[in-house]
């Protein structure tokens, strides 16, 4: 099983009036079909780490390989291309484009990638949305959907180009318990049924306990990186 992400001594320092260390000396390897929780107190650098792994931000030092390719020499356009085909993001807030329907939002990354014909994109967008329990809401705009529904559209959008890795930053953070459970199950299904790797930041230790691997951050450093015994996993 090849590694999706290999990070070595990743450090991210913000050069403000006082240098702020967001991520400190993080080394980790993420393989295919993993279900990983990133936990830690607020301000411990969970989001910052995710932005680094997702090629949205550049580390101050350390090396990062995504899909076997060194991220360091990549230009802005190349990193964008990697985000488009290799990665899917889900944020705490849905971050859908407000003028477009659920289906159009899911289609946008596909259209940017341009690998499928338009009818196939439409069909695929509908299919993903339906598989996430959104049948009947496909042509609604974000403001016509509930919070949980929007977040599911965001997951659908992250899946649009069939990337091997989904990065989620507190995807259930702003949802009520019921919607939260629903979204969690969807992410779980993404791993179990679609064979993706999901890395999800969460505050909810119960949810983290249901995932396969937990990376615990404190002050930007990995304090614990524990996997469940494989017996427990299945």
């Amino acid at each position: 099983m090849s590694a999706l992400i290999e990070a070595e001594n990743l450090t991210r320092v913000l050069h403000e009036t006082v240098p702020v260390t967001l991520v400190m000396d993080v080394s980790l390897t993420i393989g295919e079909n993993e279900f990983i929780a990133v936990t830690g107190p607020s301000g411990s650098g969970k989001s910052s780490l995710l932005y680094l792994l997702g090629l949205l931000d550049r580390p101050t030092s350390g090396t990062l390989r995504v899909g076997g390719r060194d991220a360091e020499p990549m230009g802005e356009g190349e990193r964008a291309g990697m985000r488009l085909s290799m990665l899917g993001f889900v944020f705490q807030f849905h971050f859908l484009l407000p003028e477009f329907s659920a289906r159009e939002n899911v289609e946008i990354p596909m259209r940017k990638l341009g690998r499928l014909s338009r009818p196939k994109m439409r069909a695929r967008a509908a299919e993903i949305l339906e598989s996430l329990g959104l049948e009947g809401h496909i042509d609604k705009r974000p403001d016509q959907l509930s919070g949980g529904q929007r977040q599911r559209v965001a997951v659908a959008r992250a899946l649009a180009n069939d990337p091997p890795l989904i990065l989620a930053d507190e995807p259930t953070g702003s949802l009520d318990t019921k919607s939260s459970e629903q979204v969690f199950r969807i992410l779980e299904a993404v791993v179990r049924e679609r064979g993706k790797t999901v890395v999800a930041v969460t505050h909810d230790l119960d949810l983290a306990a249901r995932m396969d691997r937990r990376i615990h951050l404190v002050d930007g450093k990995i304090e614990a990186d524990e996997s469940l015994a494989s017996a427990e996993k299945h």
Partner: peptide, 14 residues
Amino acid sequence: DIAIMKSLGFAEGD
């Protein structure tokens, strides 16, 4: 929206 589109894989040029 610009930030979102960038996170989705749109480049600065786009």
